[in-house]
């Protein structure tokens, strides 16, 4: 398996046993754009095959978990199939996923909506009035959903955003909080405890169990935050917002 010239990850994919009902296809040991693209392309390829016995696939920062029923699809056969797929092409050269959506999400930075903005400004070497502009300058990629229902991990901010998580935990940050640490942005869809710092809040809800579909964001989607004032989102309505989406 050759790897992309200049790619972030110089290794090659590895298959690992993940319990008696899983094989983990590991593309890297950390998040990197080329690793993430490989993960998303491989995940899409397995889903397209609709292989009998595969229960679900789980794309993450650095791997794809294939959960399957070994009584329906023997271990050896799935392993051989995944190995053959890995050998077919250089997955690290895969482009970002086809048909990914681009979201523009209104967000109120600072104040009650971003109680930790001043602290983040200090840690990232920015003035407080620069944080919103710097954070929303470029679209961010949904690297994975995890931790809690619909919570999106967005990669990746510039190097100066490589700020540590807090050692203490804030017990309940609200759904829609825009949280930052380690060059990433986390967007929870339900209230969560967290050690990440909140710089903004969006009225967008990526998850609602009573909506169809319940989950809006998918790994690979692009998210751009649009700094707005409190007044501009006063009448925000998810149904109206979705009508404006492609």
């Amino acid at each position: 398996m050759s790897s992309a010239e200049g790619a972030d990850w110089a290794g090659k994919p590895v298959l690992r046993i993940a319990g008696d009902m899983g094989i983990l296809v590991e593309f890297g040991d950390a998040y990197a754009p080329a690793v993430s693209n490989a993960v998303l392309a491989f995940d899409a390829a397995i889903r397209q095959m609709t292989l009998a016995g595969v229960i679900e696939t789980v794309p993450t920062f650095r791997s794809v978990l294939v959960r399957f029923d070994p009584l329906e699809l023997p271990f050896d056969r799935l392993e051989a199939r995944l190995g053959a797929m890995l050998a077919e092409r250089d997955w690290y050269l895969a482009p970002p996923p086809q048909g990914r959506r681009e979201w523009v999400l209104p967000a109120v930075y600072g104040g009650a909506s971003g109680p930790d903005l001043a602290e983040v400004a200090d840690l990232a070497g920015l003035r407080e009035d620069q944080v919103a502009g710097a954070h929303s300058a470029d679209p961010l990629t949904v690297a994975m959903l995890g931790f809690s229902p619909g919570l999106a991990y967005l990669g990746q901010l510039a190097q100066n955003w490589n700020i540590p998580r807090r050692t203490g935990i804030t017990p309940g940050v609200p759904a829609g909080a825009v949280l930052v640490a380690v060059r990433q942005t986390v967007l929870p869809a339900t209230p969560i405890p967290t050690g990440w710092r909140q710089i903004a809040r969006t009225p967008f809800r990526g998850f609602d169990p009573r909506r169809s579909p319940p989950f809006l964001l998918s790994p690979g989607d692009l998210v751009r935050f649009q700094p707005v004032s409190e007044a501009q989102i006063a009448g925000f309505d998810m149904d109206e917002f979705m009508k404006g989406q492609p």
Partner: peptide, 11 residues
Amino acid sequence: SIASDATLPGD
């Protein structure tokens, strides 16, 4: 610690 990925029951 490692970069997060999917967990399994019994891990």
